[in-house]
Design a binder for these strands. Structure first.
Lengths: 351, 351
DNA sequence: CTGAAAGCGCTTACAG
DNA sequence: CTGAAAGCGCTTACAG
């Protein structure tokens, strides 16, 4: 059906391997006469030649296919942004991306990946232990892999510096005159230390309070059950306890929590940021559509995907710079209407 | 590196082609002695054999790879759900999915797809014209393709029955005692007829009003510039004009519009659904996180992806049932707090 | 500087 | 019922 190297060879009367070399821009093609090269290129164009990538991969013993392994998408939107980055980096370097759900059977999946002789794999998972079924076989076959949005000590794994993000939020609250800050996080039935980002963010809060509110002995944090976020009574009790403790600046572990809190505040006629300012985490769409617009800490998910992918490719191609091992991307605080300026603080010093 | 058929053949002392047939469950493998078969299977397991899919595709002249072509993800979350469906259907039938951005250069992309000898391609695009750079080459090579969330007259293309969804929303508003319904849509600088779903939804509204509000001469609809959704003054003027016209039931073209409208209503101290009920479209996450919870029309995006993919595979494998040509999946109205029960309507008749 | 050959890992028609 | 051979479309080491 499709036109092959053999067709081009027959059509031009030039040896098949010369044709291959010209089409691949192989250095040795330079030694051919220019008109020979042009003849080949012209024929390829005319007949609409498309190199068969599978055959090429087999001949080359290198597959130019990458695998992106993740769980179901469509609920947490940032997964899409991560995938954008992965696709872009893969394309930029001539790779094709295959996608796979980790769900059903990791054992079967790893076989499928090996079957495609993938050059590398990028994992978007939540806990490092999910890698277990993969590592042995991947390492045995010398296939590099990396995690995105999750650090991977000793290996490739890039995520954002969430702790620094929360610290900067605490700092902003202090500098805009907030008297008492609180941190709200969700209990998702796993210990906070088990999910990396939960851990990091919480840590960032405690460190931030220590640094910017040195007079505070015990940082105020509050945990609630996110599965009851639609339970008005329950949520109202959460709100009450924040107000009772006079928190006037609240940082939430995620935008979703912040929005839930904002909603119950609206219902109780306590518009943010009148009684308290509110800051979420993630820069998600819901932070834009909430009212008032939610301040949030922005993560560059696309870049995360790109850097991980680039590192995996580097490793696959033997250019092991190792630079991305333990990469932490910066985040930035986006202040919007949900944060009030409580007291003008004039900072001293020049500049 | 990886173990090959040749290795297995050497290890077991059995002819390479018999090994291949046993491993593929080829009918002819049945004629081999059971112990021979077991010997092969055991060796494959012991050595950790993984068939090289590329080599297999080349031998078979059929590639078991599908392509999913879409634009950037991460803003409209339902794209992720569509992709879930596509992956699932592909996996279920033994295919591997590659993903591609349509963005940069359709011409280059189609060459890449042909290079991989994809068995079929699934497009998630917004307008049928975006297919133009692809159809000729795809059809020439006899590669089937389909569109998801967009109908494709004469070909494979599945979407939801949005018109029926809006009609049912109008009906619900009537039956719950709303006196005057309005439809709100966004001007995105393209004519409404150019984006299929915009067209269908609008049509559904007009048909619904004709059917359930036969006394209404001219259905009330209102168009606003979504790029100004954060402009409070502008949005307030939209709200005012709805109120002035006494609309007590508002259906929006999308959840995003509905949320924007809801926000400006909150700001103006006009809590939905007191003055007017509100219904969005899409069943998106923001419909859950808005306050009050937004009623919406739910689309099954995952199923959309699955059906399209299944049809494309059918076509690729020659089982051309053609059943999915012009497929319209049902949608369902999800009534939540944003819709009030204005008057109890007792329906007559039995059952 | 160029051509004929062997090889990649599989599948499948073709003999015995 | 089984084995030796040719073929898929490429790449690359090896002779002239």
């Amino acid at each position: 059906m499709a036109v092959t190297l053999k067709d081009l060879s027959r059509e031009t009367g030039i040896n098949l391997c010369s044709v291959s070399q010209v089409l691949n821009n192989h250095p040795r093609a330079q030694s051919l006469r220019p008109e020979t090269r042009e003849k080949i290129l012209a024929a390829a164009k005319r007949l609409g030649y498309n190199k068969n990538q599978m055959a090429a991969s087999i001949g080359k013993k290198h597959s130019y296919v990458l695998a992106f392994v993740h769980s179901d998408m469509g609920t947490v939107e940032y997964m899409g942004r991560i995938q954008n980055g992965v696709i872009k980096a893969a394309n930029a370097r001539g790779y094709t991306l295959t996608v796979h759900h980790i769900g059903d059977s990791p054992e079967k999946l790893v076989h499928k990946l090996l079957g495609w002789r993938v050059a590398g794999v990028i994992f978007h998972i939540f806990q490092l232990e999910q890698l277990t079924p993969f590592v042995r076989l991947l390492e045995k076959e010398n296939i590099p892999y990396g995690t995105v949005n999750l650090s991977n000590p000793g290996g490739i794994g890039v995520t954002t510096d969430d702790a620094a993000g929360v610290r900067s939020a605490v700092r902003h609250l202090r500098e805009s005159g907030h008297k008492k800050v609180a941190y709200v996080y969700a209990d998702s039935k796993v210990k906070i230390s088990e999910i990396e980002f939960k851990h990091r963010r919480f840590q960032g809060f405690e460190d931030g309070v220590r640094e910017y509110y040195p007079e505070v002995k015990k940082p105020l944090s509050l945990c609630f059950d996110y599965s009851r976020a639609q339970d008005l009574k329950y949520m109202t009790s959460i709100l009450r306890s924040l107000l009772k403790k006079n928190a006037d600046g609240v940082i939430c572990e995620s935008d979703a929590l912040a929005v839930a809190l904002n909603n119950v505040a609206i219902y109780n006629n306590c518009m943010v940021p009148n009684r308290f300012s509110l800051i979420g985490f993630g820069g998600s769409m819901i932070s834009e559509t909430s009212f008032p617009m939610l301040s949030t800490i922005i993560q560059d998910f696309e870049k995360m995907g790109m850097i991980t992918t680039d590192s995996v490719i580097d490793s696959a191609e033997g250019k092991n710079t190792g630079s991305a091992a333990g990469n932490l991307l910066p985040v930035s605080l986006l202040v919007r209407e949900s944060v009030a300026e409580r007291i003008k603080v004039i900072r001293k010093g020049v500049k």
